[in-house]
């Protein structure tokens, strides 16, 4: 769901993050009588997210003022690694993140989940594996010898979840440096299309026999234009996983965390809160990680573990 960050760009993002962190750290440090909180986000394009972030930051600051919070700052981290470092340094207090990335921070003991986030109105999501309608494919196993388009290597729904499904189907995956290269025998070659629409385009144009994107992207006409999508159909859907979590720095005061959780849990009940939620990545609401939320989180965790094992 985000672009791969290349070398020069990574350096530039780090510089920006440092500058922003520096400017927002000062108030937090001098918050002796009134502390300031920091809302962070992983992004190498801070300008695209600033407005959303400030909306939520302002809301939190306003609502937590009675808790001794004098303000909420916004900090961007160009990468998950950088995010880990900032969490470690205590320079980011709160952030929203998708399940698999969040599990990385949880496993690193740097963050703790507070609430399930209904990002873009969806509490959970799953992957859809797409093939051409005229491909004649009816099962994942039939993809042997073919090519598969993943979104990118960091994508939960575009890579981790479908890969797990493919492997569970007994397929052996072979990475292809160029999707036009032949697939090794008895294997399923794959490449990263670097975008949901590219996955669709690859499958549509036959560059790949199948591809995977999230069900949310599949339903989004912006990422799945009808003129490309109409010729495809879903061959397989993975189990749903929790989509996004509102996280807190592991070391953040529990009482405050509870207060924040309580605040966010009822945020959708007020017009003002709904307006801020809508602006903040179209979040519908926050709810406690219980029931299906818990199930979804566990499902995500299972996939994450499988991925970690495979990577190891």
């Amino acid at each position: 769901m985000r672009g791969m960050v290349t070398g020069p760009l990574r350096i530039l993002c780090a510089l920006v993050a440092l500058v922003l962190a520096g400017t927002t750290a000062a108030p937090a440090a001098m918050a002796e009588s009134g502390r300031r909180l920091v809302l962070g986000r992983i992004s190498n394009e801070p300008h695209k997210h600033m407005e959303q972030m400030r909306a939520m930051a302002g809301y939190l600051a306003e609502q937590l003022a009675d808790q001794g919070v004098s303000g909420v700052d916004v900090v961007f981290a160009e990468s998950p690694t950088r995010m880990l470092g900032l969490l470690h340094e205590g320079r980011i207090d709160l952030f929203s993140e998708t399940a698999f990335v969040a599990l990385e921070f949880i496993s690193a003991n740097m963050a703790k989940p507070l609430l399930r986030e209904w990002k873009k109105g969806a509490p959970e999501y799953h992957s859809v594996i797409l093939v051409r309608r005229d491909s004649g494919l009816t099962a994942l196993s039939e993809l042997v010898g073919g090519k598969f388009a993943f979104e990118d290597s960091g994508s939960t729904s575009g890579y981790l979840m479908p890969r797990a499904a493919l492997e569970e189907a007994g397929l052996q995956l072979a990475a292809l440096t160029d999707p036009r290269n032949p697939t090794p025998d008895n294997m399923l070659g794959y490449g990263f299309a670097q975008g949901e629409i590219n996955v669709i385009a690859w499958v549509n144009r036959g560059l790949a026999d199948a591809g995977a994107i999230s069900n949310l992207d599949w339903e989004d006409p912006d990422t799945a234009p009808a003129r490309l999508k109409d010729e495809l159909h879903i061959l397989h859907e993975t189990e749903p996983v929790i989509r996004s979590l509102f996280m807190a720095r592991r070391s953040l005061d529990d009482e405050l965390c509870a207060r924040i959780s309580a605040l966010l849990e009822h945020m959708h009940e007020s017009p003002e809160g709904r307006a801020v939620l809508k602006k903040y990545y179209k979040v519908a609401r926050y709810d406690r990680i219980e029931g299906d939320a818990r199930t979804g989180l566990e499902a995500a965790r299972a996939i994450w573990r499988r991925h970690r094992e495979h990577s190891d």
Binding site: A193, Q194, I197, N198, I200, W202, L228
Partner: peptide, 8 residues
């Protein structure tokens, strides 16, 4: 490359 995302 069918990089429609970039094209977009």
């Amino acid at each position: 490359l069918l990089d429609v995302d970039h094209i977009r």
